[in-house]
Design a protein around this nucleic acid. Structure first.
Lengths: 189, 189
DNA sequence: AAACAGGTAGACCGTTCTGTCTATTCTTGG
DNA sequence: CCAAGAATAGACAGAACGGTCTACCTGTTT
């Protein structure tokens, strides 16, 4: 009993786009792997670009939920959670199917800022950044905006480096740097 | 008196790839803008992938030279140069034609680690990282590897964020975070 | 002058891709 | 049981792309 054709398409498209890229995956491949007919796709989505936009939003929702709840499970104190972000990042980076941040890929394949894919990538990044600022605030940072922004830079930097080397070294180094920043903000002993 | 058809092709291809992406730019467009015939391209390069690889290597050489010499012109002391890296980054990010790091774009459009484009992107990143470690060493860091790696994370993170928001805020925030790291390493008062 | 190397223009081929259309089959509510 | 909506398979059109090929031109060297 399949949930719905629309959901099948979103899940399959999100998986294939993350694995191979957006331009590299054709409509026909998505249809074949989802087991859905072409006309059904074009009943639910106006175009491939529209499917890309919705698949990215779907990926964002799934990622935000999975990532932040995994972080919350790793630590009890606010400052500990800020470090746990990078532990979870390291775990993510050494998973077999890690190929980099799909939202950065979307932005790199759609360089025009007006493109929907670029917008969704911005939204994703803003959500990460806001969450880190919120966590910095809960940890009692004197300037949560600045600390959160710095941690967001380390976060995105680790993502970029891990995409290239495919190890968890960047995330571990980011954790060390984050610890230094937390100590400088007197949130860590 | 044009330098050489080969060089025309490399420069035009590098410019178009950086501006619009690799898959988005067709052979015909490069030929038209470079004013070169198709057969000439295929005399100098085996395929489009080969052209991409060589154009990336050309871009890398040009960027490394321009960036590090601009950094050297900004500061006299080793520690000052480490901060000047992020000032130069900020200047780069607000230039009109900044669309993100073309080497990350290459890695994002060629997700297979075996791809030549991925290799060149890795080489570029390693060169940046090595340069930062070398500068951290010259500045007298106790652990230049760790400091250089942390600064490289901030560098790549600022690149990623600037690609999304197209401002120099990420580079400025990265500079602040870098200053904190330098103070923690007792290289800055 | 003649031979030669390198470049040009543009037609051409096979493939791939998005998106449309038709005719048929499946499912489900009343 | 049957009618209506939804989904299916697959052909098809139109365009773009990478890459090959032929015929022609131009400048240099011997």
């Amino acid at each position: 009993m399949p949930a719905s054709r629309r959901q099948d398409l979103l899940e399959t498209a999100a998986r294939l786009f993350a694995e191979h890229g957006f331009q590299a995956v054709g409509i026909d491949r998505i249809l074949k792997e989802a087991g859905v007919a072409k006309m059904t796709l074009y009943k639910h989505f106006a175009s491939k670009d529209d499917l890309i936009r919705e698949a990215l939003q779907f990926s964002d929702q799934a990622w935000q939920h999975a990532f932040w709840s995994a972080v919350a499970d790793r630590a009890d104190t606010p400052a500990g959670r800020l470090l746990a972000v990078f532990d979870e990042l390291a775990a993510w980076h050494i998973s077999d199917d890690y190929r980099g941040c799909v939202f950065m890929h979307a932005a790199s394949e759609h360089l025009e800022t007006a493109s929907p894919a670029h917008s969704v990538a911005c939204d994703h990044h803003q959500a990460v950044r806001s969450k880190l600022i919120e966590m910095a605030d809960e940890a009692g940072a004197a300037d949560p905006e600045a600390l959160g922004a710095s941690l967001a830079l380390l976060f995105e930097g680790a993502n970029a480096c891990a995409q290239l080397c495919r190890t968890d070294n960047p995330a571990k180094q980011a954790r060390d740097a984050a610890a230094t920043l937390l100590r400088a903000a007197e949130l860590l002993v």
